[in-house]
């Protein structure tokens, strides 16, 4: 299985005005910070809402989902004693809100699924995309990941002792994934793996490297802080390395107490 990557966008790459990216004020005004961040990243990635229609699958990934809305609704239940609750945070707390809103922006009726599997969420979404391509079900897929930091989440994880050696983080990353190489293709994913046990740096290279010109990104998530889909940020960095001339990058990530994930990303040349 393999796939081509035509563009990767993070929330830092969003330069277009949000009102152009999400023209529907009705959708926009209900969106929490993470939903805005993820949806704008997605629309920037595809180059405007008019292009959403050219995708035949939208696959999103999130470890925590829309935490702010979940917290808000939970807080309202407790404080207002289950009376006169505003439905909006409940609606928006759903894990597939981002995927659904992207579809809604341009009435895209295609396959639209959300993976919520901690540190594997992004890789699971990518695997689904690659399986769809291998099955001939999709040509162009939008794959993305997002997670947000909130004060409550930070406090809870601090109490759990998770931040002794690392800060927390958040982010949104979306990628245009293609079945076939196009003029815009910047890289290709040629291996995706979910080993049952930890691999050493040596084992990663032995098992996945195909040449000497390889960069191993081994648990580089630590540079970005800890959040469930931080590996999507590492994936974005890997494609940047390829764009800057690296031939092959192996991305190995193991965090949140889960088994590792491995991606091999190569140049298309």
């Amino acid at each position: 299985m393999k796939c081509y990557i035509d563009r990767v966008t993070t929330e830092h790459d969003v330069v277009t005005d949000i009102k152009l990216l999400i023209p529907d004020a009705g959708l926009r005004r209900r969106m929490s910070r993470v939903i805005k961040s993820a949806v704008t990243t997605a629309v920037e990635c595809v180059g405007g809402i008019e292009n959403i229609g050219s995708y035949d699958a939208i696959i999103t990934a999130t470890g925590w989902g829309c935490l702010t809305d979940s917290e808000r609704f939970l807080r309202n239940i407790i404080v207002d004693k289950e009376q006169l609750l505003n439905p909006t945070p409940f609606i928006q707390s759903t894990f597939n809100t981002v995927g659904g809103q992207i579809a809604l922006l341009n009435h895209n009726h295609c396959y639209n699924v959300t993976y919520v599997n901690r540190s594997h969420s992004f890789e699971d979404a990518l695997l689904d995309a690659m399986m769809r391509i291998a099955d001939g079900e999709s040509e162009n897929i939008l794959v993305g990941a997002f997670d947000e930091q909130t004060p409550s989440q930070h406090r809870i994880m601090e109490r759990m002792g998770i931040f002794r050696n690392i800060n927390d983080g958040e982010g949104a990353v979306f990628a245009q994934i293609r079945a076939h190489r196009s003029a815009e293709s910047i890289a290709q994913v040629t291996a995706i793996d979910f080993p049952a046990h930890s691999l050493s740096k040596q084992e990663c290279l032995e098992k996945f490297a195909t040449s000497e010109n390889v960069v191993l990104m081994y648990n580089t998530y630590t540079l970005h802080g800890l959040y469930p889909t931080v590996s999507a940020r590492c994936f974005a960095e890997a494609t940047r390395l390829i764009q800057n001339g690296t031939k092959e990058v192996i991305v190995y990530n193991e965090y949140f107490g889960a088994t590792p994930t491995v991606l091999r990303i190569q140049c298309v040349g």
Binding site: T94, S121, M160
Partner: peptide
């Protein structure tokens, strides 16, 4: 609060049911 996220239930199921292979969690309402 340890089991808040969706994958926590998947992990617990896997652990108590002898799941030894790939596992994931989906949430689309």
């Amino acid at each position: 609060v340890r089991m808040h996220d969706c994958a926590a239930s998947t992990d617990a199921i896997a652990r108590h049911c002898g799941i030894n292979g790939y596992r994931t969690t989906i949430s689309t309402a």
